[in-house]
Simulated assay, not measured.
Amino acid sequence: MIYGEKNIDRPIRWAMVGGGKGSQIGYIHRSAALRDNNFQLVAGAFDIVPERGKEFGMKLQVDPERCYPDYKTMFKEERKREDGIEAVSIATPNGTHYEITKAALYAGLHVVCEKPLCFTTQEAEELRKLAKEKNRVVGITYGYAGHQMVEQARQMIAGGDLGEIRIVKMEFAHGFHSEAVEKENESTKWRVDPKIAGPSYVLGDLGTHPIYLSEVILPQLKIKKLMCTRQSFVKSRAPLEDNAFAIMEYDNGAIGYVWSSCVNAGSMHGQKIRVVGSKASLEWWDEQPNQLRYEIQGKPVQILERGMNYLYPEALADDRIGGGHAEGLFESWSNLYARFAIAMDAVNRGETLENLWYPDIKAGVSGVRWVENCVRSADKGAIWVEYE
Rank of each mutant, 00 (worst) to 15 (best):
G204E: 15
Y68R: 07
D63F: 06
R128E: 12
V168K: 08
E287G: 12
Y212I: 01
E51C: 04
S31M: 15
R230I: 02
P300S: 15
I8E: 06
G22S: 10
G95T: 12
A33I: 06
D242S: 03
D9Q: 13
F340G: 03
K129Y: 02
S232I: 09
E86I: 08
E314G: 00
D345A: 13
F119G: 11
D161E: 15
Y142C: 11
G328N: 14
S261Q: 01
S200Q: 00
L206T: 04
H97G: 03
R237H: 07
L304G: 06
A315W: 04
T73F: 03
K102S: 12
G19K: 08
P64Y: 05
F56I: 02
Y312F: 08
G160E: 10
G159V: 05
W259S: 13
M308S: 12
M16P: 12
I255N: 03
G207M: 02
L109Y: 03
L218S: 02
V276H: 09
E305R: 05
A180F: 08
Y98W: 05
V216W: 05
E287R: 08
E388N: 11
R320K: 13
I8G: 11
S232Y: 07
I223C: 12
F176H: 11
Y71G: 00
M308A: 10
G266I: 09
L105Q: 06
S236L: 09
F172Y: 15
Q61C: 07
S366V: 06
V368C: 14
G44T: 07
R52N: 05
Q148L: 05
E386W: 01
E287K: 09
R154P: 04
A104Q: 07
E283D: 02
F330V: 14
R66M: 08
K134E: 14
L34M: 15
Q271T: 14
T96G: 01
V88Q: 00
I255F: 10
F245M: 01
R154N: 05
T96Q: 11
C67A: 01
H177S: 08
N373E: 13
I296Q: 14
S187P: 00
S377R: 07
L213M: 15
L162D: 08
K6V: 06
A153G: 09
V17P: 05
L60K: 10
V137F: 06
R30T: 11
Q291A: 12
Q24S: 14
V234S: 04
R52T: 01
V192N: 11
N38Q: 05
F75A: 07
E241L: 00
Y71S: 09
Q122H: 11
E295P: 00
S366A: 15
E283N: 07
E125M: 10
S214N: 01
R136E: 04
A15P: 11
Y212V: 03
K134F: 01
R191I: 10
N348Y: 03
S23Y: 03
M170V: 12
D83G: 04
R10N: 11
Y3H: 14
P300H: 04
K80G: 03
